[in-house]
């Protein structure tokens, strides 16, 4: 791993929502092939960081830097960031009524890879195999995007998109929330199968359980807009047993004392 280059690097990122600072200086380096997890209690700024990095207009990055494969993400809008290889799996994927999954994916694939006949043919073939991977029924293709989908179906569709669009860096925002144990296994398999040894995955999660399936190389704990602790995979299990409270800066001091 040591000779791999840094694929994704963020430096001292600050994010504001409606004038209120919610991310207060986060830095992170990910090498190609690495999986990192950002864990933290509700309201710690995890999802805000994810949305801001993907270019959501309501999340303003007030200072800091973000580079993907050497390219400055902060100079790009959401479209360009996607085409540069960034992917955000949404915590709450939006319904697009009247637009079928197949048409939606075809347009997205065309934007990313171009749309000649040959690519279109391989698109159908690939879609079929990805359906199988994620145990998705073929009727999915003709349903409207996330319209009337269950929570689990929405999350599968997010990972299906990740599998098709082959991002270099995938940020998965609470992809595990709302999944039962079978769905979690299927979705996790999908994540593992989609990310190549060149790609990086950033898992944003509240709970440890998805990390049993998608093994992280590093775990970061975020609280009150900052990364307060980083460690190996064991850190996640420790959090599962002990919760987040012990890590709060004021509590930590007490423990030491």
């Amino acid at each position: 791993m040591a000779d791999k280059k840094i694929l994704f690097s963020i430096r001292d990122i600050h994010v504001s929502v409606e004038g209120k600072e919610v991310v207060k200086g986060v830095s992170l380096d990910m090498q190609g092939g690495e999986k990192h997890a950002i864990m933290g209690p509700n309201g710690s700024g995890k999802s805000s960081l994810a949305n801001a990095l993907a270019g959501h207009p309501n999340y303003t990055i007030t200072s800091g830097e973000a580079f993907l494969d050497g390219k400055n993400l902060l100079e790009m809008d959401a479209t360009a960031r996607s085409l540069a290889g960034l992917f955000l799996a949404f915590q709450y994927p939006l319904a697009i009524p009247g637009v079928t999954v197949a048409n939606f994916l075809r347009t997205a694939m065309k934007a990313k890879f171009g749309g000649d006949e040959e690519k279109l043919r391989s698109f159908r073939k690939e879609l079929k195999s990805r359906f199988e991977l994620l145990e998705i029924d073929n009727s999915f293709a003709t349903r409207y995007v996330n319209d009337g989908f269950s929570g689990g179906e929405k999350k599968r569709l997010e990972i299906l998109q990740m599998a098709m669009l082959k991002p270099k860096v995938a940020i998965l925002d609470e992809t595990d929330s709302g999944l039962d144990i079978d769905a979690l296994r299927i979705v996790s398999n999908g994540i593992n199968a989609s990310a190549t040894s060149e790609d990086s995955v950033l898992l944003v999660t509240h709970y440890q359980r998805i990390l049993n399936y998608v093994k992280p190389d590093k775990v970061h704990v975020m609280m009150d807009g900052k990364i307060v602790h980083s460690g190996g995979p064991d850190l996640a299990r420790q959090l599962e047993d002990q919760g987040y409270d012990w890590m709060k800066p004021d509590n930590a001091e007490k423990v030491e004392a």
């Binding site: 270019g55 959401a78 996607s82 009524p97 637009v99």
Partner: peptide, 22 residues
């Protein structure tokens, strides 16, 4: 934003949403 995060341009996103609407 959802569509743009999948590589749609702003114009493509609007077109897609309006087409779906009807």
């Amino acid at each position: 934003f959802y569509l743009k995060s999948r590589g749609f341009t702003e114009a493509e996103a609007v077109m897609t949403i309006v087409e779906g609407f009807v």
